[in-house]
Design a protein around this nucleic acid. Structure first.
Lengths: 200, 200
DNA sequence: CGTTGTTTTGACCAGTTGGTCAAACTACGA
DNA sequence: TCGTAGTTTGACCAACTGGTCAAAACAACG
């Protein structure tokens, strides 16, 4: 039933998604135009619409691709592992994502800033559930005295906010730190922060 | 030379700035339209352009107004005060700003996400200078043993990222915390975090 | 080579965009 | 009350927007 994809199809779809990630992550959905994307992709506008039925469809494909990998690091937090080390590892995974996929991070930030019109269901569904589970795990760790008392929600927000800050506010970070690579030192800092906060 | 402003002028300019803050903070400059703003303001589009010469001008007025108050909390950090208490007070001021001016926070976030095209000079000028001064102050505090060793830049980013997160990612925070008011508990959490991180 | 399916394009469309303008309307002090 | 400065509007414009379409160009394969 489903036709296999041509080499050209595969290549051009990848080109389009890459180019549109550049544009959407900077200007958001409404602020981006197909002309911008087509120029970034080096394809005619009509050609874009041969591979994707609409602007919405490109954006949706991008978000779907993003969400797959975005929530993953949290899933890999092991409730049976050493609490401090598990949380540290999670923070490092998130920081690594910000370093490797800053555009994806900004795409997500843009979507949230605009009120998450396309992913509200994910926020209130999958993400909420996963966060609730993590909340329970952390609560138990606190009760067991494995980490110092801390509000689990705010702890999670701390990790999210800090790690994503280096991607989302990269321009500001660069303006202040100059040529230094923020990610170089951020890993150590994050480790220090969390150890001091959590180690009993 | 400069004509005094009418009551009507004052009122309508305020209305326009308020409405455009709603719109710009959600969709960014490019994603916002004068039609949206005029509807939000309850004024005709032509009337908007009687008070402001262009869309750019409205946005510029908004940013100028924002920057005045945005950097202020950092200026009030007292190098001669008690280090931990000073940093704590700064963090609380910032959190308070996020609570009271979430739209302004999102306007700023949008501007940074888009590469700060309108305020790059401020970032690399005033903000950079101010941050450098603060960096020196914190460094001296560390050297004096008044606070535990910590990278000053990342410490500042921590305060920025965390406090602004509650405004910029409000939709996500709400999706996860439900009806709880995040700001209720965020103050205490922030205090705990910074004390554990900084207190020698 | 010719045929068939895939890819690319330029011309085109209707709706939206930021912005202009002259005319109409309103506030208000003399 | 009148005159004038300040205010509001609807009609209008050119550029841009997302999207369509038929025709042309290309690739692949026997």
């Amino acid at each position: 039933m489903k036709k296999p994809k041509t080499r050209i199809q595969l290549r051009n779809e990848a080109i389009i998604l890459g180019a549109s990630l550049d544009v959407f992550s900077q200007f958001g959905f409404r602020g981006s135009t197909l002309d911008q994307i087509s120029e970034a992709a080096g394809l005619s506008k009509a050609n874009l619409l041969y591979y994707f039925p609409s602007k919405e469809a490109i954006h949706a494909a991008l978000l779907a691709q993003l969400l797959e990998t975005w929530i993953d690091p949290l899933k890999r937090l092991d409730p049976t592992g050493d609490p401090v080390e598990e949380l540290l590892a999670y923070a490092h995974r998130k920081l690594d994502m910000s370093k490797r996929f800053p555009r994806e991070s900004r795409l997500f930030a843009n979507e949230i800033l605009q009120g998450a019109p396309h992913i509200n269901n994910v926020l209130q569904g999958e993400l909420r559930d996963l966060t609730d589970q993590t909340h329970q795990v952390i609560t138990k760790w606190v009760e067991a005295g494995a980490i110092r008392p801390v509000d689990p929600y705010h702890l999670i927000f701390t990790i999210w906010a800090l790690t994503q800050h280096y991607a989302d506010f990269a321009v500001q970070v660069r303006a202040i730190m100059g040529d230094q690579d923020p990610f170089e030192s951020a890993g150590d800092y994050l480790e220090t922060l969390l150890r001091r906060l959590l180690t009993p």
